[in-house]
Every structure is written in structure tokens, then in C-alpha cells.
């Protein structure tokens, strides 16, 4: 390795760069920056792992909540829908009856940018960016959304009354009622 000339003054050895070189950004510094950003992603994944509450809009794994009776659900005809709130007043959901006669419930939050979806009788539609979801499992079929809607588990009581009882663990699982 090249040695600094001994004749250089001490200050020069302590401050080896000239003024115009001060803003120099070495590869080593850049690599350290990359490593720190990489560590940030690891911390982020660790946070998601350690977080107990589901992220906003994400279904909890089979989480059950205080059952919410859905008035008038049994009277819904095929292609009709009604809105209800579930966990709290801000948790807006939509109950619908498919053309096969099955009741389905989803969070109204579009998985694209969070607009409220509505049921047009055949598909769930997000009017903001014209995203469409099929009503049976909530899967996106057209437009910008790529993830299915969050499903709500339904339960039918012995008297025929329908209640929302929790989040579906996976959007692909049926929420038959």
C-alpha cells in the first residue's frame, strides 16, 4: 500500500482531502447506504411479523368479532345489496346476494386505492378507477386492483337470521350463508 510521504505536515495527514474533494461520495459510502436501506426493509418485515393487529384493510386470520345481525338479509333478492358496518362505524361493508342465491359480504374498501365499492347487480365496482370484482369470492376481474376484497364471514342462525361474525381467514374461502 502506498505510504504518505513523511515530509507532509501533520494537518495534511489529518485532512487528506482538498476542499473540492469534500463532496466526494465513495463507493464504500454508497454501499453502506445500500446496506442501511436493506436493513430498513428487514426491520419493516420484522415489524409486520411482530404486529398483532391486522393492517388497515387486511383481514385478520379468522378473527371473530361481536356478531352483527344483518337486518333484512334474508329478503335480499339476487343482484341486490345492502350496506352495513361491522367492527366499528368506520368499517363499512357490503352484503349482497349473488345470482346463484348465495349471500356474500365484503369490506367496501377497494384494494387498489381504498375507494368504496358498490354492487351493480353483476359485479362489485369501484367507481374511482373502474376496478371490478366478481361477487362470489371478491377476486379482481378488471381494472387496476390486483388483490381480492376482504371477505366477511356470515352465519345463519336457526331462525334464518343472518349475522356477520368475523373476517374470513383467506379471501378465497367461501363465506356461504
Amino acid at each position: 500500500m502506498a505510504q504518505e510521504p513523511v515530509s507532509k505536515p501533520f494537518w495534511r495527514r489529518a485532512f487528506p482531502l482538498d476542499l473540492h474533494e469534500e463532496s466526494r461520495y465513495s463507493r464504500r459510502e454508497f454501499a453502506r447506504f445500500l446496506a442501511v436501506v436493506s436493513a430498513g426493509f428487514t426491520v419493516g418485515i420484522g415489524y409486520l411479523w411482530g404486529r398483532k393487529r391486522p393492517l388497515e384493510g387486511a383481514p385478520g386470520e379468522g378473527a371473530r368479532h361481536e356478531p352483527v345481525p344483518l337486518e333484512g338479509a334474508a329478503e335480499l333478492k339476487a343482484g341486490e345489496s345492502k350496506l352495513f358496518t361491522f367492527r366499528d362505524a368506520d368499517d363499512r361493508c357490503i352484503l349482497l346476494r349473488t345470482h346463484e342465491g348465495k349471500l356474500r359480504a365484503y369490506r367496501q374498501t377497494c384494494t387498489h386505492l381504498g375507494c368504496a365499492v358498490r354492487f351493480d347487480g353483476k359485479r362489485l365496482e369501484c367507481p374511482c378507477h373502474m376496478g371490478f370484482f366478481e361477487p362470489d369470492r371478491g377476486f379482481p376481474v378488471q381494472g387496476p386492483p390486483t388483490r381480492p376484497l376482504a371477505g366477511i364471514a356470515l352465519e345463519v342462525g336457526p331462525d334464518g337470521s343472518v349475522r356477520a361474525v368475523g373476517d374470513l381467514a383467506k379471501p378465497t374461502e367461501g363465506g356461504d350463508a
Binding site: 426493509f41 419493516g44 418485515i45 409486520l48 391486522p54 393492517l55 384493510g57 387486511a58 383481514p59 385478520g60 386470520e61 384494494t111 390486483t146 388483490r147 381480492p148 376482504a150 373476517d167 374470513l168 381467514a169 383467506k170 379471501p171
Partner: peptide
């Protein structure tokens, strides 16, 4: 991270 976040949002 993008993949994991998407998966977590899907449950």
C-alpha cells in the same frame, strides 16, 4: 418487501 406487504394485506 413489496411482495410481503401485498401478502399481509391479503391476510
Amino acid at each position: 418487501f413489496e411482495t410481503v406487504l401485498g401478502a399481509v394485506l391479503d391476510g
